[in-house]
Design a binder for these strands. Structure first.
Lengths: 147, 147
DNA sequence: AACCAGTTACTTGACAATATGAAATATTTA
DNA sequence: TAAATATTTCATATTGTCAAGTAACTGGTT
């Protein structure tokens, strides 16, 4: 296990990633707050705006207990952003889906995530491609060349 | 406002960063849980292991209300990981510092953050330098060439 | 020096949101 | 029928905000 724990270059990259993570969360919560949503609520609403899904799957995506999702969806439903409907294939399951208002809110939320866009605007296309490839390799994703 | 919201390359990089963020938090919380610490507790302990500081400064670093820090440090103190001491220069201030056990725990925690190291191990030195420079520019940091 | 107003640091209390885990209900599956 | 699954409810802990309270510092005045 000769992992290079003290390699200064690695440490610096780790710290930079930590900064990226912190700023990402900060901006995400700010954007959510601008719509009077908590971070968790915004995340669930964003998930559902891509695709309605059962409560259990939300819990899996969020990596939390299903009982926790009940409360979050309750609050979103109370605000008219999400609706619970039956699953025709399984009467135990409840499918959560955004209302029209919820879909609009999710769209606005996505638009207001400036962090993603603005700093990247400072990079050239070439830079962005490079960054994409490095992140892909870091995450162990195959990338299109392997597909 | 001609922000390129739909530029596919930008969107992909944004999504990759989102994945990095998610994995970072996941591993951080796992590492913390392995020491029976919550994420917030681990973050505060990590902060203090770099440098003891007043309660207020912890709140600033965490971007939360000082009253919140009181509870987190209370719990860390109850477990013998952190101690509150007086600030000789200002008797209103309480300096939080890790105990020896706390310092050891923080060190182990840092060591178990494999996400930081392992994926980076898949990158060459050249790659890491490139990633560092791109992240730096993305974050609007000057970098050493400007220092 | 003493005093007083305003500010600052921290804590406490009330409350909401998030999170877990155990137990209950309804439904599906074998 | 028995076991497993999806969801909810309840008890409880943590995290977070805000308002109020206490202690201590600061600056300006005598």
């Amino acid at each position: 296990m000769a992992t290079p724990r003290t390699d200064p270059l690695t440490l610096e990259v780790v710290e930079l990633i930590g900064t990226v993570v912190a700023r990402y969360y900060e901006e995400y919560d700010e954007a959510a707050a601008a719509h009077s949503l908590t971070g968790a609520q915004a995340r669930v609403l964003g998930l559902l705006s891509l695709e309605p899904m059962p409560m259990r799957r939300i819990a899996q995506k969020l990596k939390c207990e299903p009982s926790n999702v009940t409360g979050i969806v309750d609050r979103l439903e109370a605000r008219g952003l999400v609706e619970r409907g039956p699953d025709p294939a399984d009467r135990r399951v409840k499918l959560a889906a955004p209302t029209e208002l919820g879909a609009r809110t999710a769209h606005q939320l996505r638009d207001s995530l400036t962090f993603a866009r603005e700093p990247l605007a400072g990079l050239s296309d070439e830079d962005r491609r490079m960054l994409r490839d490095l992140l892909r390799r870091m995450l162990g994703e195959p990338g299109p060349s392997a597909g």
